[in-house]
Amino acid sequence: MATGGRRGAAAAPLLVAVAALLLGAAGHLYPGEVCPGMDIRNNLTRLHELENCSVIEGHLQILLMFKTRPEDFRDLSFPKLIMITDYLLLFRVYGLESLKDLFPNLTVIRGSRLFFNYALVIFEMVHLKELGLYNLMNITRGSVRIEKNNELCYLATIDWSRILDSVEDNYIVLNKDDNEECGDICPGTAKGKTNCPATVINGQFVERCWTHSHCQKVCPTICKSHGCTAEGLCCHSECLGNCSQPDDPTKCVACRNFYLDGRCVETCPPPYYHFQDWRCVNFSFCQDLHHKCKNSRRQGCHQYVIHNNKCIPECPSGYTMNSSNLLCTPCLGPCPKVCHLLEGEKTIDSVTSAQELRGCTVINGSLIINIRGGNNLAAELEANLGLIEEISGYLKIRRSYALVSLSFFRKLRLIRGETLEIGNYSFYALDNQNLRQLWDWSKHNLTITQGKLFFHYNPKLCLSEIHKMEEVSGTKGRQERNDIALKTNGDQASCENELLKFSYIRTSFDKI
């Protein structure tokens, strides 16, 4: 039985969820670079991206490699990797027998973001014989899940209580170790020597080791999670996991709180800001991140802002960003909400898709409305799209047979046209069989910064309504002859009103 693990408890099935942008060198404390989270699957090609990484700022997932063999891993080693800020997950990587050479110096898994409450997941690794993470000293947050690894031993010899604050939620089941077939031998045991430290858990006094050649490092209890030197002297209180010299914040392997210019500090002093819960960055760093993602459509890219001495992905609820200094300031009234469309555009074809934009005031991208039916549609669209004030790209209304009016965009005031449909149009209306009105132009103002209007096959939309939009939106004169079809717009509506004058002759039985 794995020490510190839980057996036999019912657990939810383990679901495996399925960018080499360097964020800056980590400095003297770390020998390499800070790398983003990685999802490495199918083959070993991307694994080489770990070569210079000291910190993975995010998670590391290595999974679904069915053609790899043990010899493929023999020359692979990433000794610079010290810390993973989120979680480490391995799933069905064939041929991998140990992690001792792959990650010989991995010391800390912070667990800032977890995989279903777990910071370390080893699942269905069919050839893994031992973990071998002999320098792993601290899992700051989260638990361990090690399950269905039929060859995995050296679990009962690990004292997880020396690595985690609590072992109650560890789930370590259905491994070879369960069948008591392992016969784990710690260093020196074969020669009758006791080389590794022994600890007591559940009444068992057991030597602690990761492999037959690597003991588990056990520091004096007084050192807590700070770690200790090879001689057993406690590291500085700002260290986490390990250090090369005692009581020196510049000799830590990793930091308990924050890293700044080669030393570990309790908090980031001005003019620095907390970033990702582990390091200090200056304003320029946060500003660069903001600008890199301002026009990016890459998933996970955030326009970072500053709030409460932190550089964070977005302002919290009730705050909006001051564009001059990136500071989050309290909103006066309802907060603006910028919604970034991942692929640059979004099609609204149902109430469900409209709900995804609920509360958005600025759309960074283009909207395509293609709704053919739905219950209580006008009210639903207004509830979900009615706060949109600005669209950076274009607005396209296409084959939306259920629409009679666009009044559900009740606050839309600006279409920038930074991206144009077919390279020309910022407003595009095609084949809307029941569209009769755009907006009530006596109450609604709309500016279209650039781009043209396109109207074709809107049989109940009168040309007068379209011409009014040209005047109000500032697009009059931009359109070419064929942009607004004269014969297919309003051709099934009563669009022309003329005053009919009647004269009559009164007659009676005795007068003409």
Rank of each mutant, 00 (worst) to 15 (best):
N202L: 09
R110P: 01
A119M: 00
S98T: 07
T199V: 12
P336A: 06
V305W: 04
D261I: 05
N105M: 07
L44A: 12
N257F: 05
L44Y: 07
N202A: 10
L326E: 03
C255F: 00
P187F: 10
P271C: 08
R208Q: 15
V121R: 04
P330S: 14
G227S: 07
C243M: 00
N117L: 00
S324R: 07
G95M: 05
S213P: 02
D101S: 14
W278T: 07
M65R: 00
L90S: 01
D288V: 15
N105P: 00
I56N: 01
S237P: 11
L29V: 10
L152C: 05
N179K: 15
G203Q: 10
I109R: 00
L96K: 02
L152T: 02
G232M: 04
D288M: 11
V305F: 06
I185T: 08
C53G: 04
W160K: 10
C196Y: 01
N42E: 01
S237V: 09
I109C: 00
A119Y: 00
W160V: 00
H59C: 09
I158M: 03
F258P: 00
F103P: 00
E266W: 08
N150S: 12
N170E: 01
I163H: 04
P270L: 10
V121H: 05
D75R: 04
S98F: 02
M38C: 02
N175K: 13
C35K: 01
D247V: 12
P197W: 03
T267Y: 13
V34T: 13
C268V: 00
S284L: 06
K100T: 09
F205I: 07
N43V: 10
P334M: 15
G300M: 07
I82G: 03
S244W: 12
D72N: 15
T329I: 12
H302D: 08
F258Y: 15
T329G: 14
N195Y: 15
I163Q: 02
A254S: 07
M83F: 05
R141A: 02
L332C: 09
L155H: 07
N282E: 14
L327E: 11
D177W: 12
S296V: 07
V167A: 13
C286D: 03
I40G: 02
C215D: 05
S112P: 00
C223A: 02
I56V: 06
Y134K: 00
L327R: 11
K217T: 02
L120D: 00
H302C: 08
F66N: 00
C243D: 00
Y171T: 09
S296D: 12
S296G: 10
P187H: 05
F205A: 09
H212M: 12
V108I: 14
C228Q: 02
T68K: 04
D39S: 07
E180F: 14
K217G: 02
N105K: 11
A119W: 01
A190N: 08
D178P: 06
F73L: 01
K100L: 08
F258S: 10
Y94D: 00
K193Q: 15
R279K: 05
R110H: 06
N282W: 03
V93P: 00
K224S: 09
H307K: 05
G132P: 01
H127Y: 12
H48P: 05
V121S: 01
P249W: 06
L99V: 07
V218K: 12
G333I: 14
E33F: 06
E71Q: 04
P220S: 04
S284P: 03
S296F: 08
W210S: 03
L131G: 01
K191R: 09
V206K: 08
H302E: 09
V34M: 04
N135D: 03
N135V: 02
P249H: 11
Y319S: 15
T157E: 06
C235Y: 01
R74F: 10
P70T: 07
N42Y: 01
C264H: 02
N135H: 08
N242I: 09
L326C: 15
V265R: 11
N195A: 11
D169L: 12
C293Q: 01
D288H: 13
K224L: 14
L240Y: 08
V305H: 04
H226M: 14
S112K: 12
H226V: 14
L136V: 05
K80L: 08
T267F: 09
E33P: 15
V200P: 06
L128P: 00
T68Q: 11
K294L: 06
M65P: 01
N309G: 13
I158K: 02
L90P: 00
H212L: 11
V265G: 02
K310F: 10
H307E: 03
S166T: 15
C335E: 03
T189P: 06
A230K: 12
C219N: 00
L44N: 07
H214L: 08
V305N: 03
S98L: 00
I84T: 00
E33K: 11
M137K: 05
P313T: 10
D178I: 06
